[in-house]
Every structure is written in structure tokens, then in C-alpha cells.
Write a protein that binds this DNA or RNA. Structure first.
Ligand code: ZN
Ligand code: ZN
Ligand code: ZN
Ligand code: ZN
Lengths: 157, 157
DNA sequence: ACAAATCTGTTATAATGTTACAATCCCGTT
DNA sequence: AACGGGATTGTAACATTATAACAGATTTGT
């Protein structure tokens, strides 16, 4: 599988995606506490994005349903450590599709099925970064998102 | 002034920006009703982004303070007709800096002073669009945002 | 003047995200 | 094993952003 294939929109063995992510999480020596683990599990179910409250509503451990801060803390942790990404256009979250090699990611978002494909690509348009650098701007993070309709949804699935 | 200069971070005659925008708005045969006009005026004060409620709080006409839908309707209208842009990273809005020639814009966002510079640039990273096209994705809109600290704010202004 | 379309007023509510502080758990040291 | 500091969780309240629904007013074209 090539590095910049939009896996999420292709037939693939998704259990591999899970495996890689979980292995990666463990290898980093992170403390994957119960809520973090559970949130990561939810996100890793597939390549759809989930809102914080969608996650929150599905979170549960021994009959205990946590409050909003619990979901946001876990999400912040996962995002901070590169195991998940925030999709600004959707105010939602996806599992990182390449936690082992995620430098700079862009996202292809289907507004029908909510699938989000992650693509490793150079940060932003070269023009934008060049222009920023030209005026001494210190760039810290970039958002690259393309929204539209995926091929499946165009064909009415 | 070159086309892809981040005007917002440069010394410039901002009254020109206003003029151009207002002229452009009128030329398009749009119905710039009072709220739309007032919201546009607020956005055109400078190149800072404003949240919908910041706008709402400052909106007022003959002593009448409108409700949220009024602000959102005006903003939706302005965005739809290219007179303003939504900044996804901030859930906020800026006046379009080049309403006369705005094809595809990226944004350079200072998290200190909230100034947002608009840069006319090719939509998204070429890689991202190519990859999307490769899988038959129908791209409708793209988000390109770079967040960081502007040169002014780095120097403690 | 009339009807249709657009815009506005108004109330209520939904969806998303944060603050603050106390209680608990984990981990390295004594 | 006891201790102490840092990280994590529990909990309640609250802040911010955005939309739904529907009635009334204004504008536009005929
Ligand atoms: Zn997968
Ligand atoms: Zn789709
Ligand atoms: Zn200006
Ligand atoms: Zn600044």
C-alpha cells in the first residue's frame, strides 16, 4: 500500500489499521488509561469521524457514563500524541490512519458518509507557507481539508 | 501590491480594502440589507476575525439589538456571496480581502492578535487534490489555514 | 394591487466546548 | 510498606456556537 493512498475510501483490511494504531500507541510508552483506550477503540472502529458528544454518548465502563470533560480530555490526549486528529470543518475527530508515520496530514472528507481519508502530504499549499514565511510568520499548525462527495456516495450507496 | 501578499500583516491603506469591498458588493447587484450592511461594516473595520456572537453583541440599529439568527443569516449571506470567509479553526469570520478576485483562498492566522491574512493560492496541496481525484472524489470546498504567531506579536506588540 | 419570494423578528433549543475544584490513582523515593 | 508529588478522573455548573420553527413584514415582478 502506497504511503499517500486514501485508504479510507479503498477496500482494505481494516483490522490492520487497528493493529498498527494499537501497537503504535503501546510502543510510545503512553499511559493508555481506560477512557483513552475506550475512546481510541471507538475511533478505530472505522474511518468515519465522530463528534465529541457522539463519542461521549457511546462511552461507558461498567455501567458508568462519564461527563463531557472526560471525553474531551481523552480526545485532547489522543490528538496531542498523534493517535487522532481533529477535523476542523466538522468539529469532529478521526483516528490517525498512520500513527507510525504521520508528519503532516491532509484530509478528504465525504459529507455524505462522514468517512475521512487521511493523506500524508506536504503541509499546506507551498504558496501559503512561502507567503507566511516571507512576512516572518511563525507557523505552528496547518489545516488542510477537502470536503465533497466520495465515489461510493456519488453512486448512491 | 502583488496578488498574493498577506496584506493584513503589512502596512497598507486599509480604507482601500473597505472601498474595494463595498464597491464590489454593490456591483454584484446583491441586496445589502441593513443587517448585512452592518455586519459587513463590522468585518471591514480591520483584518481581524470576529466570532458570530462578537458581531451580534456589536450589532445594533436604532437601538434595536437583534437575535442570533440575524447575525448568522447575514454572515451566511456574506460568505455565500464571497464577501466574507469562515475561518474553521476559529469558528469565526473575516471580510474577504479580495472580493474582486477571490478564487481560492488560504488563510494565515495569528493566534495572538487574531489578524487573518488572506492569500490567493491554489486550492489545497496539489497532492491532496490529486489523491482525491484519483479515487473519484468530487471536491466541493477546501480549507487551508495556517495558524501561528505573526511577526508583530513575536516581537511583543 | 396582487401573489410569490425574500427577508426579518422572536422564542426556544440543540450542539459543542470549558472552568473549577475535589477526589483518586499511579509511580518513584524513602 | 509508607509517603509525597504529579497525573488522572469525577462532578457540577456554565460558556460558546449554531439551528429549528414559525409568524410577520418587506420587496419584487406581473
Ligand atoms: Zn482502515
Ligand atoms: Zn461518502
Ligand atoms: Zn486592509
Ligand atoms: Zn499577531
Amino acid at each position: 500500500m502506497e504511503k499517500s493512498e486514501p485508504l479510507a475510501f479503498l477496500e482494505h483490511d481494516h483490522s490492520q489499521c487497528r493493529q498498527t494504531a494499537l501497537k503504535c500507541a503501546n510502543n510510545q510508552g503512553l499511559r493508555l488509561t481506560k477512557w483513552r483506550q475506550l475512546v481510541l477503540d471507538l475511533l478505530l472502529e472505522d474511518h468515519r469521524s465522530m463528534g465529541a458528544y457522539e463519542i461521549l454518548n457511546r462511552l461507558e465502563c461498567n455501567g458508568v457514563k462519564p461527563q463531557p470533560p472526560t471525553a474531551y480530555r481523552a480526545l485532547d490526549f489522543l490528538v496531542e500524541h498523534g493517535l487522532a486528529h481533529r477535523i476542523e470543518k466538522l468539529n469532529a475527530y478521526v483516528a490517525c490512519a498512520r500513527p507510525d508515520a504521520c508528519q503532516s496530514a491532509g484530509f478528504i472528507i465525504c459529507k455524505e458518509c462522514n468517512i475521512v481519508a487521511e493523506v500524508e502530504c506536504s503541509p499546506s499549499s507551498p504558496e501559503l507557507l512561502r507567503v507566511a514565511a516571507n512576512v516572518g510568520f511563525d507557523a505552528e499548525s496547518t489545516v488542510m481539508e477537502v470536503e465533497g462527495i466520495c465515489s461510493n456516495c456519488q453512486n448512491g450507496n
